[in-house]
Simulated assay, not measured.
Amino acid sequence: MYSISQRANAVLAFLVTVTLGFLVAVALTSPILLHGKGLRPAPGQNVLKIVDAESHKARLAFYDRTQNQSGDSELAIIRFDISADLRDLWNWNTKQLFVYVVAEYETDSHSTNQVVIWDSIIRNKDDALIRLRNVKGEYFLVDINPTLSTVSAKFTLHWNIIPYVGALFWNSGGQTPILALPAPR
């Protein structure tokens, strides 16, 4: 005859197996639900527009002064508009969305530079309809090189889909034309 502890162990093992099977099924069905919705944005659905860009000279505390004797660097402050409908990305397995704006540019020393200038975490479907006007970037556009006025950058809206269970998904949309950053004031 089986003891109570053996029967409890069998029931618990069965429940753990069923739960893991359910989680695997959820993880495998999420890409199917998202395919064609959020992985490929509809044309004109997500729009990012740069309103203003201004540059300033500043002494940055974290900057390596061995390359720049004066210690002054240029930083850019970007203002932009975002119009994006990311509600289609939401399903029963979506925990949150991480939305961010990236500036991408080339310099003499590096062929690709990417800097995040704004980000937001969206925790429910109602907030996934983004309509922002004349928003100042949360982070300055700063480079290891002391001058940014010679740089032309393109700005892109990106998002990461963070599920409860399964793989992370990311995509982008709403790319701007290349913008030449102004000389500092």
Rank of each mutant, 00 (worst) to 15 (best):
G44R: 03
L48N: 10
S73F: 14
I50T: 04
D81G: 11
G44I: 09
T19E: 03
G71E: 08
L34C: 01
I78A: 09
E54D: 13
N68Q: 09
P31D: 09
L75C: 07
G21R: 01
V51P: 01
A58E: 15
K49L: 11
L20S: 11
V26R: 00
V47F: 08
H35D: 08
R79N: 13
G38W: 07
S83D: 14
F22C: 06
L39H: 07
P31F: 03
R59M: 11
A25W: 02
L75I: 14
K57F: 12
S83K: 14
R87N: 04
A53T: 15
A61K: 12
R65K: 15
D81N: 15
H56A: 15
F22D: 01
A61L: 14
E54A: 12
L33I: 05
G38S: 13
I50N: 07
A61D: 12
R59T: 13
S70K: 04
R79V: 06
F80D: 02
T19I: 05
K37S: 10
L60H: 12
N93F: 07
K49Q: 12
F62T: 10
I77C: 05
A53I: 14
Q69D: 14
A42M: 11
A58C: 03
E54F: 07
L48M: 11
D72M: 15
L86M: 03
E54S: 15
A58T: 13
S30K: 02
L86A: 08
F62W: 15
P41H: 07
L33E: 01
K49A: 12
D81E: 09
W92M: 02
F22G: 02
